[in-house]
Amino acid sequence: MTIRKYATIFSIAGRDQFVYLPSFLVRNVFFLIILFIFYSLWRVVYGDANTIAGFTMVQTLWYLTFTEAIELSQTRIFNPISQEVKDGTIAYSIARPYSYVLYWICRGMGENLVKVVPLLLEGFLIATIMVGPLPGYLSALPFGLIVIAGGILVGTTLQAIIGLLAFWFEEVMPFWWIVQKLIFVIGGLFIPIDFYPDWLARIARATPFAFAAYWPASTWVAFSRERFLITIGGQVFYLALFALVAALLFRAAVRKLHIQGG
């Protein structure tokens, strides 16, 4: 019963998203342009080299289509959460018979998973045109989709935590900037972590940010059973940790909540 409730929230959000899909597709021009910029940059960087840090040019570009798809598909759920905290609407929302945090995560995921499909398709087309097909793309496809959904879920849960910070801070956007940039840099969104010096790569690989970008994308471009299991294991671990953090934050936040009038 409980699971059905959240599955309904997830599917309603997904269906809603279909209505806005045309405008989302127009905005995807940015995704295509960014991929073109990356292609122009990496073409010069690779020059005559076949591989850099174990990645071929083809793998690097495909890697970037996956990490960008994960990033651009994510609805900023910390915005409505922080807005509800600021305008007091949260007083009504928390009285409803569901977990407030889970509601937003399910709603966010419903939208995100609808948005990631066209991004992956566009990425497939543009990467194939620019650098050719990715070897092993189809055989890794089911595993790739699972870990990409996992990466989006890690990012979405982080966003829910950021939204809850509105109970303590007037403006939560800067927290998002910081987390987003940690995903960009430490998480390997712009560049595979393997390019980093060894000491930094070892640290970066273990962070939650890497499980939101590097691990899912690298699992697809250089698939192995071992890599897939590490990715899934890390995502489950960090999701459990973030769920605990979100629950504790929410409990502390509700204690702080003063409801005045009606």
Partner: peptide, 27 residues
């Protein structure tokens, strides 16, 4: 809020230096 936004944005931009440092160092 003003200070958080100003310094948050400065920090936000600073992250990209690492990308370029890594790239130039690697090649």
């Amino acid at each position: 809020s003003f200070l958080i936004q100003v310094f948050g944005m400065a920090l936000n931009n600073g992250a990209f230096i690492i990308f370029w440092l890594v790239l130039f160092d690697r090649i």
